[in-house]
Design a protein around this nucleic acid. Structure first.
Lengths: 211, 211
DNA sequence: CTTTGCTTGTGAAATCAATCACAAACGAAC
DNA sequence: GTTCGTTTGTGATTGATTTCACAAGCAAAG
C-alpha cells in the first residue's frame, strides 16, 4: 500500500516506532498494543494507529501488533530493507564525528566517500577510505554510487557543494551548514541547524514564566 | 508583547529571519519588505508578517521593516540579547566537534563546562576548560551556572545524564543521543536525531517515484 | 456457541497552522 | 493637498494534523 501523501512528521514517528520495536523485540515481547508503542514513543495511541494504518493493517483487534512482523514491515516502509551509500562532504571535526559514529552503519547507512577542499586533508586516510579532492566529486560520486550526501562544510561552501552533488546525480541531501540551500524539485533536503536548536531553547527559557 | 502561544515552528522561523536580517544589514540595506525576507528565507510573505505580528508591529506600511531595528527586536524576542551558559555532557568526537565549533559562540552560547565518565577523558584540557567527572556534575553545574545542557553521550547514559542535569537545576536540554528522554513538565527538551534524519531521506528516496 | 474484555481501524470532530485578501497607512510625486 | 503605488497588519478562509469515539473483530473463558 502506497498512500497519497505521508507527512514528514508521520515518517519521523515511524523511525521512532522502529526503535521502540527494536527494544520490545530485544525484551522478548511477541506483541505490542498501540498503547505500549505510544507510551514508549511519547505519543498517543490513536496517533500510532493512524500512522500505521496509512500503510496497511498490521494488527489484530483485541490483541495488538506482532512485534517482529511489524518491525519488518516498518523497516520496509522506511526503505531500510537495504543499505544506503552515503557521501560526506567536509572532513572537519563534525565530519569526523559523523564518520566514526557507529549508529549510521547499524541502521544501514555506509559512508563510502569523503570530500574536502583543504590540501591538508585531501589524501588523509580515514578508516578504509581516503579523503578525496572536492574537485573530483563528480567522478567519485558516480564511481562509488553515492546516493545521499551529508554536507558538513562551512556555510559559504554549502550551496556550491549541493549544486555539485545534485549535478552528479545525488537526490537526497542532509545539510548541517547553517544556511538555506536552494534545490530543484525532486531533490530531498533535510536541514539540521544546531544554532536554531539552541536559539529555540533560549526562547523557551526566556518566555517560560512570567518573569 | 507576549503572545499566548507561539508554535515551535514559528520560533524556528524567527531564527531564520534573524540570519537573513544579518545578511541584509551586512549588505547595507536600511529596510526590507516581508517579501524580501520571505524570498531569502524560503517562506511566504504572509507567513513572515504573521510571525512578526505575534510580537508587535515593527514595520511601516508602504515601506517595510527597518533592518537594524527589526534585527534588534528579533534578537530580543529569541532571548539572544544576553549570553547563555552551556554544559556539554560527553567528551567524545561529537562533543569535541560541537565544542570547537565557533558558530555557537557567535550566537551567544558559551560552553562553560564539559563532563565525561571516562577516566581517560576526565582531566583533559579542552581550550581553557578541563573535562570534569560526571560524578561532580551537580557541584560544577551550580558553580559554573550552567543554564542549558547538551547531551552527546551514548543512548544508554542519556536518561541518567538528563535526570542529573535537571536535578542540578538545568531547565533546557538539547539531546543528541538516539533515545527518547523523559523529562518533567517545565523542562524544555529538543532532540536532534541524526539517524531519523537519514531514515527520512531513505523514505523519500524509496517512495518518490512509482518505481 | 455465547459472552466478556480488549484492541484495532477509521470516519468525524476538533485543533492547529498556513494562506488569502483587503482595509489602513505611508512616502513620493506633482 | 490629492493621487498613486506600495506594503503592512489581520480577520477570514483554507488546509493539514491530531484527537475522539465507536463499530468491528479477535481470543479466551465458560
Amino acid at each position: 500500500m502506497r498512500p497519497a501523501k505521508i507527512s514528514e512528521s508521520a515518517v519521523r514517528r515511524l523511525s521512532l516506532y522502529l526503535r521502540v520495536l527494536d527494544a520490545f523485540e530485544l525484551a522478548g515481547k511477541a506483541t505490542v498494543s498501540s498503547g505500549d508503542l505510544a507510551e514508549r514513543g511519547g505519543v498517543t495511541p490513536a496517533q500510532v494507529r493512524k500512522d500505521l494504518s496509512h500503510f496497511g493493517s498490521f494488527g489484530k483487534r483485541g490483541l495488538g501488533y506482532p512485534v517482529s512482523e511489524l518491525r519488518e514491515r516498518v523497516t520496509e516502509i522506511l526503505g531500510l530493507g537495504r543499505r544506503w551509500r552515503v557521501g560526506l562532504i567536509g572532513a572537519g571535526k563534525l565530519g569526523a564525528a559523523l564518520f566514526f559514529y557507529d549508529g549510521f552503519r547499524g541502521q544501514g547507512f555506509d559512508v563510502v566517500a569523503i570530500f574536502d577542499n583543504d590540501l591538508e586533508k585531501i589524501g588523509q586516510r580515514w578508516g578504509r577510505l581516503f579523503v578525496e579532492d572536492i574537485e573530483s566529486m563528480d567522478r567519485v560520486v558516480r564511481a562509488s554510487q553515492v546516493e545521499m550526501g551529508i554536507i558538513v562544510t562551512p556555510a559559504v561552501s554549502a550551496q556550491h557543494v549541493a549544486d555539485r552533488l545534485i549535478a552528479s546525480g545525488v537526490e537526497a541531501i542532509l545539510n548541517f551548514a547553517p544556511t538555506r540551500l536552494q534545490v530543484p524539485p525532486g531533490i530531498t533536503l533535510r536541514n539540521v541547524n544546531l544554532e536554531i536548536e539552541l536559539e529555540s531553547l533560549a526562547f523557551a527559557l526566556t518566555h517560560e514564566n512570567g518573569a
